[in-house]
Design a protein around this nucleic acid. Structure first.
Lengths: 208, 208, 208, 208
DNA sequence: TATGAATGAGCCTTCATTCAT
DNA sequence: GATGAATGAAGGCTCATTCAT
């Protein structure tokens, strides 16, 4: 209940302003932790260094996150929030055809893949981690299901509109596309241009 | 330097027997390390526990692997060896058409994905790790390139034979397929049957 | 410096009311600290938890007790006050014989031992602590001496009145009785009924 | 199974000698920990200082005691062993009368109380601790019961032999005596001579 | 008075690695 | 080759205390 404030609400009420400060610090810590993970992996995440990067005392960090696990959880939420924002941007422009919407969705993904590759790499580690860490497993699973649902509905509509191949299994195709995008950060020396071409070709394969 | 062999191993070629013993131990340690990584991730790999699982003293382990990095390197080689064996099995039956060979290749991958999922999960972690660990980067990159070359040649032949779509870009398609397979271990609740269907559909998209 | 009292406490003498409030808070904190010690021992006493139990901020606690040592001192005073109140209750009815008075004294002790065993356990820890903590040593020593004096005078009178054995050394007997009572909280599985019987028998041993 | 070796058994067998070394170190650590507790209480026990006093590395200490709790347990065993040795020394000279044996027992206790007062102080803390620490509770309880049994049997025999008062309740008397001895370390400024006199007088009270 | 935030010292524990035997 | 013991450098976390508001 401390969240969801926009900047313009900072009125005379001190407690609200405090909350903003509090959340700001929390966010700073989460971002620092994320960057550290991106640089050195989960195994290289050191509470001490996170605190150092935000230039606060270790004890203070523990004031915001009582445990390392909590901080990691914060990073997970942050990343999930990030991709959730990407995945459903089309809601604003519903006038498009499913084909255009899928195209837009792919463009968004490619854009983010290029601009914030770290996010995807860390998400990859998270996904792998989910097999042994029941804390992060459910939230990632849910996010995945939402993504899947979104793609399935898009594909189903596209097939009905005879935009996509009639022999497409929406469920399976969604899985295929997700697997493809998840695998991209695991490509070692790949160029962004190659990714774009691959996505284009893939789109093409779906067409009727 | 080699002295004091236990009586029963003294065969006609003692040095060979020793080497075999030596290699056996090394292999045991590598497998133990791999399993540990599969269970607890790279961050959960403890030299002590590897030694314990093979029931030898830590000091003895250091005789085989002078450093933890060396042991990890051993695991990397072991895994790479594993997938290399998968990726080029068709060499034995060159009579097939490119389409059949690709199908066989996919079947092999799916089979291994189901039988030894741990291998792929750990490989995924390795791939992610390669971005910051220059030790494992080159070997994985090389393996990847070999895989890519194999697929490209297969696709090129298939296109020439009019088995695959004429508009296929072999290079890009190879990347697409690799990305798809790499992304599979990152699918959280996926069933093997779904993977099989996805692969079938994908194969279908390639056809002329 | 004193400002902003809540409306309902503004009586005719505000400073007095404040003092009362102040003392009330202090007392609450002391009691909370005592309970914490009783539950988890001195080593388990956490300033933070004391504050939490009284539902105030840590900083506020420091307003009442500028140091942890001070709070502990408060607990010591509180406990000493408790036992002092027990030890000299007979002052009210001086008509009794020494024997009756000693009996009454023992009854009081047994009663408190049963009703507030925590007090005695913590006092035990305090007594042990006194060997290395010169802060609490004097006050406990003084209390002990008062107790000893009280018993000695009682015994002396009783001997003179031929109620107690003539061969009793009052000083030594007092010490014996005190040691006995102090040792009771160190009995692990003892029942109150056993304590009562032991006290009865002990009383009997003193009789002429 | 590593214990129970006497010095003269150190033969050529290296493993046996090692065991002795191992146990010696363990014992050194336990003694150091005990002294630290005696000086600063349980709350003042610092693993680092224990290691420093034995002049070994902290990590090495953890080689012998994987946890602080384990070291404390070792101290508990050490102390219990100490008092057990005191409490039943008369077994060697069974010719004595119960009265003499009890006298001897008291003398032993007083002797130890004077020579190793720390042991009793720490035992006192242990007894108090037992109320919240279920780890040490059973072992102390058992020791207590053994002591009680010993006293009861002694008293019972003495009563039958008409050496002790006929109206003595052995069970209750045993408890009384134990309580008395346990309370001695809680006497702040008491002299050994006073303890001796108190014990003498107490013995006297038991006589027929 | 009251509070949220901050601090620094320190504690328990882990772990890769080394070494003498 | 094998073992038990040792080491030092962290790392996660706690806690009494302080400070600005």
């Amino acid at each position: 209940m401390k969240k969801q404030m926009t900047a313009e609400t900072s009125s005379s009420s001190p407690s609200l302003a405090q909350d903003t400060n509090h959340d700001t610090r929390r966010h700073e810590l989460i971002v620092a932790a994320f960057q550290l993970i991106a640089e050195k992996g989960f195994e290289g995440l050191r509470i001490r260094e996170v605190a150092a990067r935000v230039a606060i005392n270790i004890g203070t960090l523990y004031y915001y996150f009582p445990t390392k696990e909590g901080l990691i959880q914060g990073v997970v939420d942050y990343l999930v929030q990030h991709i959730v924002t990407i995945q459903a941007p089309a809601a604003l422009q519903e006038v498009k055809t499913p084909r255009d919407e899928l195209h837009q969705h792919f463009c968004n993904l490619v854009y983010e893949l290029r601009e914030t590759p770290d996010v995807f790499r860390v998400l990859g580690e998270l996904l792998l981690r989910a097999n042994r860490d029941t804390t992060i497993s459910p939230i990632l699973q849910e996010t995945d299901e939402n993504w899947s649902h979104y793609l399935v509905s898009l594909l189903t509509r596209g097939i009905k509109d005879r935009l996509f191949r009639a022999d497409l299994d929406p469920q399976i195709t969604a899985r295929t596309l997700m697997s493809f995008f998840k695998g991209i950060p695991l490509q070692l020396g790949i160029q962004t241009s190659e990714v774009e071409k691959a996505v284009d070709q893939l789109e093409n394969w779906l067409l009727a």
